[in-house]
């Protein structure tokens, strides 16, 4: 089973590497992010920005994810279902779990690669302008780790959403738009509940119920304030893992459905 997972992961990464769409989307995304980063570090002292400037990248990548993740995930299952290659894949001794997990890992891996690309901007600042990097707080390793862990956890759940969207349709455009809307919705709910002063302790209304079982949906974005400073908020990471589990199991159900 693990063997099938690794093979699928390798092949998926390979096909992402040879796909022109990946390069085009990565190029545009990183170029935009780079320009944004340059103007951000020029202007942030005049704004209400209180987090370390490094966390702007994490937020940029997070809010850019709705545009980026669909490019990485929409083809995976939808296109394979349309072409029928998913069935071919199933004729080999692999199970649905390996297929889903492999495809998810591949897109996740690629997302992390792009994150690394984005994080090379502050690295460049550190190399070219060491004194500026110091005053910008780029030399604190905990800020790097915290931001990246934040991205890692949310990237994982976004990729899972993308894989799920891809698994429920045969049309990759529909899959792309679906994952775009789902991720945007996810971000929007987190952003709307941002900073709302409520506390979950007792059940008083449906809001509280939502807050209890919604996981990161309820004020998940707040936690960037922790991660940006290098405080890893473990429940947030676990919440994202639950989201990953949830969407990947749904995707697995979908893939298994075509076998009946």
């Amino acid at each position: 089973m693990t063997q099938g997972y690794w093979v699928i992961l390798r092949t998926e990464i390979f096909s992402l590497f040879i796909s022109p769409a990946t390069y085009v989307s990565t190029f545009y995304f990183l170029a935009l992010l780079g320009v944004g980063f340059r103007f951000f570090i020029e202007s942030f002292p005049a704004t209400n920005w209180i987090l370390p400037p490094l966390s702007s990248l994490a937020l940029g990548l997070l809010f850019g994810a709705p545009a980026l993740i669909p490019f990485l995930t929409m083809r995976t299952i939808a296109e394979e279902r349309r072409l029928g290659t998913l069935e071919t894949l199933m004729t080999a001794p692999v199970d649905a779990v390996s297929i889903i997990a492999g495809k998810w890992s591949a897109s996740y891996f690629f997302y992390l690669l792009i994150c690394c690309g984005a994080y090379s901007y502050p690295l460049l600042v550190c190399i070219i302008f060491p004194s500026q990097a110091e005053s910008l707080g780029f030399l604190k390793p905990e800020h790097w780790i915290g931001g990246f862990v934040f991205l890692m956890s949310f990237g994982a759940s976004f990729c899972a959403i993308g894989i799920f969207s891809s698994s429920i349709t045969r049309n990759q455009m529909v899959a792309g738009m679906l994952s775009f809307s789902l991720i945007t919705l996810y971000l929007a709910i987190m952003a709307f509940s941002y900073g709302e002063p409520t506390k979950i302790d007792e059940f008083r209304s449906y809001d509280d119920l939502f807050a209890m079982v919604g996981g990161s949906l309820h004020r998940g974005l707040d936690k960037i304030q922790f991660f940006a400073l290098g405080v890893l908020h473990i429940p947030t990471i676990l919440h994202q893992l639950i989201v990953v589990f949830f969407f990947l199991s749904l995707a697995k159900l979908q893939v298994e459905k075509i076998r009946h």
Partner: peptide, 11 residues
């Protein structure tokens, strides 16, 4: 999980 309070302080 939301009842958990673990956090790791890297600073």
């Amino acid at each position: 999980v939301s009842k958990l309070t673990w956090q790791i302080d890297l600073s």
